[in-house]
Amino acid sequence: MSAASQGMIQGDVQSRIDKWVARYPSDQPQSAVMAALRIVQEANGGQLTTALMDEVADYLGMTPIAVYEVATFYSMYEHQPVGRHKLCVCTNISCMLRGSDELLDYMKQKLDVEVGQVTADGKFSIKTVECLGACGGAPMMMLGKDYYENLDEKRVDEILDGLE
């Protein structure tokens, strides 16, 4: 919480992180690290950087390595560029049984992009994910913070064509 840190953690970002810190025992600010990483990642266009992780470490009184460990362990943190819209397509068993592989192929073709890559205009990236706990709506994907379920090609067209 040094006054010198003139980076991402100030203003709204800072107050959001502080609210998370307040949820945990007063001597355990580290418990807010997952929330802090999510918040700075969002504020940085969906991607973490070493500078951001260091800032989080400094702010929460952690060693940088402890923050890197967390930031690389969990799948929702990104260390490579992502599109403005990150399409997280579930390919686990229940989605697979209802056609997620074919749907994924369709999306790759439609957007002309491979899994893990960003479209040339920076608009989209595709990521395959493990079961998102919505198998009753398979096949499904997460886009931003929202789930889109019972997908087929037509529905995917509607969703993707409607995005800015």
Partner: peptide, 27 residues
């Protein structure tokens, strides 16, 4: 009473991994 949000890791459903994660560590 509070909510804590994970960040994507199946193993955090195992109760001691969940506790580690709640403490701000790898699960």
């Amino acid at each position: 009473l509070h909510a804590h949000l994970g960040a994507g890791a199946y193993i955090c459903g195992e109760e001691t991994a969940l506790i580690e994660s709640l403490e701000g560590k790898k699960g």
